[in-house]
């Protein structure tokens, strides 16, 4: 009888421990989640002015940036290279 009682007690203790661990785990997940959400919203608050500043920087278009932009537009003449396919066919005539 005593052995059975002991077993029941152990089972109850294990069950209680599992419940406690589960509750702690749920609370931890919720807390971490909320921290993450908080961080995210804070981050957004911090990032938003940065984005605005970046947009302003782009909108500012300093003469140096404008010169770089125009220099970056490359107009290459590839006519002769592309016409090689035509030349190959011409040779067959």
């Amino acid at each position: 009888m005593d052995t059975n009682n002991n077993k029941d007690t152990i089972k109850k203790i294990i069950l209680i421990l599992i419940i406690i661990i589960s509750i702690v785990a749920i609370i931890k997940i919720q807390r971490d989640g909320s921290i993450w959400v908080e961080n995210k919203s804070n981050e957004q608050e911090i990032l938003s002015p940065v984005d605005i500043e970046l947009n302003n920087a782009v909108d500012k278009n300093t003469t140096q940036e404008l010169n770089t932009s125009i220099d970056n537009i490359k107009i290459e003449d590839t006519t002769d290279v592309d016409l090689k396919i035509v030349d190959e066919e011409l040779n067959k005539l």
């Binding site: 003469t63 140096q64 404008l66 010169n67 125009i70 220099d71 537009i73 107009i75 003449d77 006519t79």
Partner: peptide
């Protein structure tokens, strides 16, 4: 024809480049 066209695009490019340089 394509080479002539390229020249015209390059002329536009040069004109904008000159504008940017003048402004700078």
């Amino acid at each position: 024809d394509i080479k002539t066209l390229n020249t015209k695009i390059k002329a536009a490019h040069t004109a904008v480049k000159n504008t940017a340089t003048t402004l700078a």
